[in-house]
């Protein structure tokens, strides 16, 4: 698989770029514009062993990405002499078509164990047909979590599945480790996996969520033979949040410092006592006035 495959983090960037579309100046309305069309095809093996086939279909105009929306993409599992339709999926507003097949889906493989898949857009109207193929070997990533006082480790086993369904350790591959953050994944290490096995020393200073729980991603990325393969594990190796919820200072709270409330109330009571004293005197003056009137 030579075509570049996108990690899901890049996928996010794509969405970002999409939302960044700018208003075109009005004068562009009548201009002929030229678009460079892109049709990208890649495959992911997800943690639940399902497999996704993803096509990105868009044009580029003055560095701006214009997605093709609602285009029907057909996916074929092909050998040298036959083509089997395995599914269709329409592109979203982001120009992405995603076909995900279950873990136990039986693909037709060639002698070397490759699954050959072709994604095709038939073309309609003014838009030409596009097509791209890839070949991928099925691979299982297995994680073994080891906790010890010297530090926690993750042992990764990478086994290829041959035509007979036997697992054979792969020779070598890049291997990447991430933990899931709020919106993206933090890379925590990458190395070279050999003979189907790699032991990863898990860093001991990652906070994780409030319980110290971490979602770890182990990935093979953009591999010529295996495409993208992801495996995940939930570990409780985080140190917990760096900060505790801070105390709110009284000036910023809803109620305010006690002394302020006491002081203000005291002052107000003093003033109002005075006002009431005056009104009381006025009432007494009034009463005396009435009495005077009655006597005269």
């Amino acid at each position: 698989m030579r075509n570049s495959l996108y990690k899901s983090i890049k996928y996010l960037v794509l969405v970002g770029l999409f939302f960044n579309l700018e208003t075109l100046p009005l004068s562009a309305q009548d201009d002929d514009v030229s678009l460079d069309m892109e049709f990208r095809f890649k495959t992911y093996k997800n943690a639940d062993k399902t497999r996704s086939f993803i096509v990105e279909f868009y044009g580029t105009m003055e560095k701006e990405r214009v997605p093709v929306y609602d285009a029907e993409i057909r996916f074929f599992n092909s050998t040298e002499d036959e083509e089997v339709l395995i599914g269709t999926a329409n592109t979203t507003q982001e120009g992405i078509s995603n076909l995900t097949l279950p873990a136990d889906y039986s693909y037709i493989k060639d002698e070397e164990g490759y699954i050959n898949v072709t994604a095709r857009f038939e073309g309609s109207g003014d838009l030409d047909s596009f097509e791209e193929s890839l070949a991928v070997r099925d691979l299982n990533l297995t994680l073994e979590l080891n906790e010890s006082e010297d530090g926690n480790t993750i042992t990764v086993y990478a086994n290829m599945i041959d035509n007979l369904g036997e697992e054979i350790p792969i020779e070598e591959s890049d291997i990447y480790f991430y933990v899931q953050g709020m919106v993206s994944r933090l890379p925590i290490g990458d190395d070279w996996l050999e003979e189907g096995e790699y032991i990863f020393d898990f860093p001991n200073d990652i906070p994780g969520d409030k319980n110290g729980t971490l979602l770890v991603y182990v990935e093979i990325e953009d591999n010529d033979d295996f495409g993208n393969v992801t495996q995940t594990a939930t570990v409780n190796w985080g140190t917990g949040p760096r900060l505790e919820s801070g105390k709110v200072r009284m000036l910023w709270s809803d109620f305010g410092p006690i002394w302020m409330i006491v002081l203000m109330s005291t002052l107000l009571i003093a003033v109002w006592a005075n006002i009431i004293h005056s009104i009381y005197n006025l009432v007494r003056i009034n009463q005396e006035g009435k009495e005077l009137k009655e006597t005269t």
């Binding site: 005056s278 003056i285 006035g289």
Partner: peptide
């Protein structure tokens, strides 16, 4: 309010005014 400028009224009024 029925102020007749009697000594007691006068005194009361003065007291209130002074406090205020």
């Amino acid at each position: 309010i029925g102020y007749r400028d009697t000594p007691t009224q006068r005194k009361r009024l003065y007291r209130a005014t002074r406090a205020m």
